[in-house]
Amino acid sequence: MTAVAEAPAASSVVPSFQVTVRLRRFNPESDTEPRWEDHTVTMHGTDRVLDALHKIKWEIDGSLTFRRSCAHGICGSDAMRINGRNRLACKTLLKDLPLDKPITVEPIKGMTVLKDLVVDMDPFFEAYKSIMPFLITSGNEPTRERRQSPEERARYDDTTKCIMCAACTSSCPIYWTDGQYFGPQAIVGAHRFIFDSRDEGAEQRLEILNDRDGVWRCRTTFNCTDACPRGIEVTKAIQEVKRALLFRRV
């Protein structure tokens, strides 16, 4: 009996381990170039990369700067490049990463680094704004809600999941080299309205994305689909916008 009673107690002990986090640091007031900095901390099996960053910031170096708000994969603040891949620090468990090597944490690529892991997100949100991410209708406001069938809702369900973390856009090689490209996220944002049966602005949005720097710059490398922490099929959404432009049918 005692053995049975002790077993759950033993398994409930969360294993702890040493983790080396290799951070890409940049202080605009003192650095001319970004530099690498290693910190070794003791973490637990249930911890995420974000917890390691918290531990470093709260117990070792308070000057470490990064964005995070909800810390539960919804706000989209803490997208960063972890071991060379864009992920949310709050959704990446340490135990899923190879712990025999340092875990590299860098700011997302293709945007200006302001400090440490914080980048200038303005161009990203400007691209999003330019596809008019709001309902466009004509005529009088209905007195009741605008109705939609489950099938019509399912048409754009995938792209409603976007949390605007910029993991897709900052994983796109075209976006890295040419800041004029709208980027995958803006196209996802447009897709969400173009294929919404209640919206009447599809034509205008398609016109914007038909631009030289619109959907035709996509090279179908699938980096965005791989990067999306919400599992949105980003490349598929971009292809659907291309098809809508090609056949003029939404």
Binding site: Q204, N210, D211, R212, G214, W216, R217, K242, L245
Partner: peptide, 17 residues
């Protein structure tokens, strides 16, 4: 006023096709 209309250019569309 809506976004200025530049006349529809489909160059990139045709080149992709």
């Amino acid at each position: 006023s809506p976004r200025r209309l530049r006349g529809r250019t489909n160059t990139e569309l045709y080149s992709w096709l």
